[in-house]
Computed example of a mutant assay.
Amino acid sequence: MKKLINDPRAVVNESVEGFGIAHADLVTVHPDPLFITRKDAPVQGKVGLVSGGGSGHEPLHAGFVGRGMLDAAVPGAVFTSPTPDQIIPATTAVNGGAGVLHIVKNYTGDVLNFETAAEMAEAEGVAVRSVLVNDDVAVEDSLYTAGRRGVGGTVFVERIAGAAAERGDDLDGVTAVAQRVVDSVRSMGVALAACTVPHAGVPSFDLAEDEIEIGIGIHGEPGRHRIAMEDADGITQRLLDPIVADLSLTSGDRTIVMVNGMGGTPASELYIMFRKVAQLLDGLSVTIERSLVGNYITALEMQGASLTILRVDQEMLELWDSPVHTAALRWGA
């Protein structure tokens, strides 16, 4: 294992400390228990947004803390859910009197710990709602979930719900917008090679040199098939087809598309994939209104990519385009 780390047990704390120093104009790091808030939290009268999960998926979630997205992010250990002891103070820290929305990826530990934290925060007088992100079409069940996993669609939920909160929507309104995004977004990923969790020191799964895993999870969970390596266009088609089918995309639909790197894939390869996605959707008379290409939800240094598609209406698009100012996503601000 070759990694730019010190003690494997200190990776998360040292990484978050460095993140806080690098982006001190945007965020505040709270070290014990560990969570990150936007610099101006709590924003009075605004719904607070809190998300989190295991570390190793950077820039998700801390990179999306700031104006127009999250008010707080709660990092667990690598690929491990954060604890209620972290989530509760993060929730109360961003409560500006309008309540707090939890955005939770559908992994068993995340679901249970955010539910516990919500109950405790409500006991302290904070109104809390939750939405569950379950956009991965690859499998119905995995090693970590009951039902579909929450993956790249989380970025879309955090962005659009964050914009709704920023414009002044109340808690029920922000929750409704977030749920609309959940209902309209789907993802699927592929792995070409495994990642290595620092404290484990060995790859999280094995793939032969000529094999790829279609439908891989962001923790290395098994996908739909393990197949021989194909060219980029063939792999992209394998990711796109189930998404199109699951969303029932038809002529005239408008979309936002994200081709996301898993941490170890060059940008040039991601753009080759995006090129094919654009060609295929154009053939269906489906419009790409906006796009993201790059690393937004990773799996350490896993070589691979994921495709996320959101069917948008005009309001979603306007919320997407509104100002956002975070470490990892920034425009109009």
Rank of each mutant, 00 (worst) to 15 (best):
V185L: 10
S187H: 12
S187P: 06
S187G: 07
M188K: 08
V190M: 12
V190Q: 05
A191K: 02
A191D: 02
L192Y: 15
L192F: 14
A193R: 15
A194S: 13
A194C: 13
C195Q: 07
C195R: 02
V197A: 11
V197Y: 06
P198L: 05
H199L: 12
H199V: 12
H199Q: 12
A200E: 11
A200W: 11
A200G: 04
A200P: 00
G201W: 12
G201N: 07
V202A: 14
V202P: 01
V202M: 14
P203E: 04
P203N: 09
S204I: 08
S204G: 04
F205L: 09
D206H: 07
D206E: 14
D206M: 04
L207T: 04
L207H: 01
A208M: 02
A208I: 02
E209T: 05
E209C: 05
D210G: 03
D210S: 05
E211Q: 08
I212H: 00
E213S: 15
I214C: 04
I214E: 02
I214N: 01
I216E: 00
G217F: 01
I218L: 14
H219C: 10
H219S: 07
G220Q: 02
G220T: 01
G220N: 00
E221N: 04
E221R: 03
E221M: 05
P222Q: 13
P222L: 12
G223V: 01
G223C: 05
R224Q: 09
R224P: 01
H225M: 07
H225N: 09
H225Q: 09
R226W: 00
I227W: 01
I227D: 00
A228N: 07
M229I: 08
M229Y: 06
M229L: 14
E230W: 05
D231G: 15
D231C: 13
A232D: 11
A232H: 14
D233V: 15
G234R: 15
G234M: 12
I235S: 08
T236H: 04
Q237F: 09
Q237S: 08
Q237K: 11
Q237P: 05
Q237E: 10
R238F: 08
L239T: 02
L239S: 04
L240W: 05
L240Y: 04
D241F: 07
P242W: 11
P242T: 10
I243Q: 02
I243S: 02
I243A: 03
V244Q: 10
V244A: 09
A245F: 09
A245W: 13
D246T: 10
D246S: 12
D246F: 04
D246Y: 03
L247G: 06
S248V: 08
T250V: 13
T250L: 11
T250P: 06
S251H: 13
S251Q: 13
S251M: 11
G252P: 02
G252Y: 14
D253N: 14
D253F: 11
D253M: 13
R254S: 15
R254C: 08
T255W: 00
T255H: 02
I256C: 00
V257N: 03
V259A: 05
V259G: 01
V259I: 15
V259W: 01
N260G: 09
N260I: 14
G261D: 06
G261K: 13
G261S: 15
M262P: 03
M262L: 15
G263Q: 14
G263F: 06
G263R: 14
G264D: 03
G264R: 01
T265D: 07
T265G: 09
T265R: 10
T265Y: 06
T265Q: 12
